[in-house]
Nucleic acid binder design. Structure first.
Length: 465
RNA sequence: GGCGGCAUAGCCAAGUGGUAAGGCACGGGUCUGCAAAACCCUUAUUCCCCGGUUCGAAUCCGGGUGCCGCCUCCA
């Protein structure tokens, strides 16, 4: 069975057919590192991480690259404001990026190239574009001549004519045409800069990705991904640069994730509703945020609020409860019976999970399969079955799905301190003696410490609130 | 103005021609010393509105409304 994915370039779902059998090359546009990432930056990080891991689960060897834009206007401005050197500031936020995305379960890319480390490749890319007649110099700047690339607009399905009508006319413009975009930007006095054939300056924003893709992955890659807003102009410009130079398709599949809104409003500085990952993970466990994001399809718009995270937390809790119950019952059971109907049912859920995920990485449906599994496991336990084999197969598949989506499906094993252990023992004794007043007193006091007690037919259990 | 996306229960969210998944919340019941958890039942005759195609439409077509994004280096 083949994996299908929605290709922005084709505007439809297509079957994944990598350039090389069993291998997928994937490039995701990374952040400009001038601040902590916000929840909107977290979405592409999480969903493309999920896609990468799912492809690996399905047997592909994935070579995954994501860049850091570590020099550009925003960084220069931020550095000026904070009175910090550009490289120091960039380094600081690269570390913060790894810290935040790491907490969200995002695995590091195979390589994280930076603009400042790719300078020679960028310069020779621009030189080659000029030699082929796709770029021109104007007073120390270099521009890409959009009209020279006939297919401009194919990704975002816009025609050059329409774009020109909408284009803003800028005063003192050095471009020949408003649609032309900068490849090399002349440095202002005192600004951080690099030497080039056109004088001191720095690369335009779009050229880095073209240069990095060519350098590390080749002229054509399998998957190129990023936020929906990048489709135009960023990805359009990347295509123009790369395909003009290489004369080959840049990427077979273009993937774009949907936008995030905050409380049904656009997230913007003027509304003051920027949610930084750095802050939100102080209040909510990061795995809840990941789970929340994967509960909707990666291309759908997604609303974000504290209430919705709370609801996601409860959902995740339901899964934890079931795995814990399965583990307890498994340990207590001495039933080695074979119940093949159940085993078969569980196997079908695993197949359903793969079927859903194969269809454009529908993690929303993948998670609903997980809940179906949880429901059946609960039912199994409720009906007092206790075959170790069946319980093991439930646990195996639940865990397997958890690993693929990288969401924790079981609460962390923890050792309680002696005092709490002693109180739990005392309460068990009190209940035996039907001293419920004391039992409730202990339960209440533990609850204040965040320990929830549950008396099941198989004994007393505890969990963290 | 151009291009694109979205609209499904109180909330979130799948479903792109065959008779409305899943989660959260709410209510009733079972279990429990009481709880919690879990299970069972209940909860959208209906998928923004109006037309059309079809034996059959949330799904396709036409028109309308609302929200959002991109076209200004905000993912």
């Amino acid at each position: 069975m083949a994996i299908k994915l929605y290709n922005t370039l084709a505007r439809k779902k297509e079957e994944l057919k990598p350039l090389k059998d069993g291998k997928v090359t994937m490039y995701v546009c990374g952040p400009t590192v001038y601040n902590y990432i916000h929840i909107g930056n977290a979405r592409p990080a999480i969903v493309f991480d999920m896609i990468r891991k799912y492809l690996e689960y399905r047997g592909y060897q994935v070579y995954f690259i994501s860049n850091f834009t570590d020099v550009d206007d925003k960084i220069i401005n931020a550095a000026k404001e904070l009175k910090e050197e550009v490289p120091v500031l960039a380094e600081r936020f690269i570390e913060a990026y790894f810290e935040d995305t790491g907490a969200l379960g995002v695995k590091k890319a195979d390589m994280h190239p930076r603009v400042t480390e790719t300078m020679p490749d960028i310069i020779s890319f621009i030189k080659a574009l000029m030699e082929k007649g796709f770029a021109y110099e104007a007073e120390g700047d270099v521009y890409f001549e959009t009209k020279a690339f006939k297919e401009y607009g194919k990704l975002s399905s816009q025609s050059i004519n329409d774009l020109q009508m909408g284009a803003r006319i800028e005063i003192g413009e050095k471009k020949k045409d408003p649609l032309d975009f900068v490849l090399w930007k002349k440095a202002k006095e005192g600004e951080i800069s690099w030497d080039s054939p056109w004088g001191k300056g720095r690369p335009g924003w779009h050229i880095e990705c073209s240069a990095m893709v060519k350098k590390y992955l080749g002229d054509t890659i399998d998957i190129h991904a990023g936020g929906q807003d990048l489709a135009f102009p960023h990805h359009e410009n990347e295509i123009a640069q790369s395909e003009a130079l290489n004369n080959k398709q840049m990427a077979k599949y273009w993937l774009h994730n949907g936008y995030i809104q905050i409380n049904n409003e656009k997230m913007s500085k003027s509304l003051g509703n920027f949610v930084l990952v750095h802050d939100i993970i102080q209040k909510h466990r990061p795995e809840v945020i990941r789970f929340f994001m994967l509960q909707s399809h990666y291309r759908s718009p997604l609303n974000f609020s504290e209430e919705l995270l709370e609801s996601a937390r409860s959902s995740l809790e339901r899964i934890h409860t079931t795995t814990n119950n399965l583990k307890h019952r498994f340990n207590e059971s001495a039933d080695f019976g074979e119940e093949n109907d159940w085993i078969d049912t569980v196997r079908q859920y695993k197949e359903a999970f793969i079927r859903e995920m194969d269809d454009d990485f529908n993690s929303a449906n993948g998670i609903s399969v997980l809940f179906d599994l949880v429901k059946d496991a609960n039912r199994y336990l409720q009906e007092n079955h206790s075959s170790k084999q069946v319980m093991q197969s439930f646990l195996d598949v639940i865990r397997e799905i958890g690993v693929v989506l990288d969401i924790p499906v079981e609460a962390e094993e923890e050792i309680l301190d002696e005092e709490i252990e002693r109180l739990i023992e005392e309460r068990i004794q009190a209940r035996k003696e039907r001293n419920f007043a004391r039992a409730d007193e202990i339960r209440d006091s533990l609850k204040e410490q965040g320990i929830i007690l549950e008396d099941t037919p198989q004994g007393t259990r505890w969990k963290r609130e």
